[in-house]
Structure formats: structure tokens, C-alpha cells
Amino acid sequence: MKVKDLLEHGFEALSLPDGDREIDGAYIGDLLSWVMGRAQMDNAWITIMTNVNVIAVASLADTSCVILAEGVDMSDELVSTAEAKDVNILRSNDPTYETAIKLSGLIA
């Protein structure tokens, strides 16, 4: 499944510079070094963290997209940074667990 296809299933796009990217699996975490150590390339990364380091980690760890769970907010400035760095950021209003279950059903 492509990142942009999630938009048809209740996920909202905050930044979508590379919507055609394929999602391969997922990783959930808010501690950035755990994400860098454990997430795989092309994973969707589900988190509730929204600081600037999230964008750097998503870019360097080469995840297919960041999915912000719990409907958390990301500032316009950070969204612009994400667009500039080619990082896809989506948002789900569901809690992390429900977001993961929904994603699992879609990418399985």
C-alpha cells in the first residue's frame, strides 16, 4: 500500500511530498533511539512525539511515513520542515493501539 492510499481510510495528510512511497510494515515508538535502532526502512512509524527531531529521525531512518496518533498537533513550521526534507507526515485521531490495528488491516 502506498502512503497516499491511507488518506482514503481516515488518515489525514499534514505533509505528503512522497505519497507514492510504499509502506512495508510498521514500528511504534516515541523514544527516538529505539526507533533508529529497531524500525526498518520503509516502515510506517507511529508516534505521539511532534518535535523537530522526529523529522530528522524519520528522514535518516528512511521510514515511509510518520503517523501521528491521538490526533496530536504539529506546528506549521515543523510541517514545512517535513515537506522540505521529503518526510511524509500523516495523522490519525485514534489512539496508538487502534491506529496500529487499522494500519495492520490495510497493509496486511
Partner: peptide
């Protein structure tokens, strides 16, 4: 609180 300090930095560098 920024998401760092998990004690995984050096281990990740080695990994």
C-alpha cells in the same frame, strides 16, 4: 522529554 536519553545512542552506533 525530547525523546532522547534512552541509552541507545552508542549501542546504535555500534549496531
Amino acid at each position: 522529554s525530547l525523546g532522547f536519553g534512552a541509552g541507545m545512542g552508542l549501542p546504535n552506533m555500534k549496531r
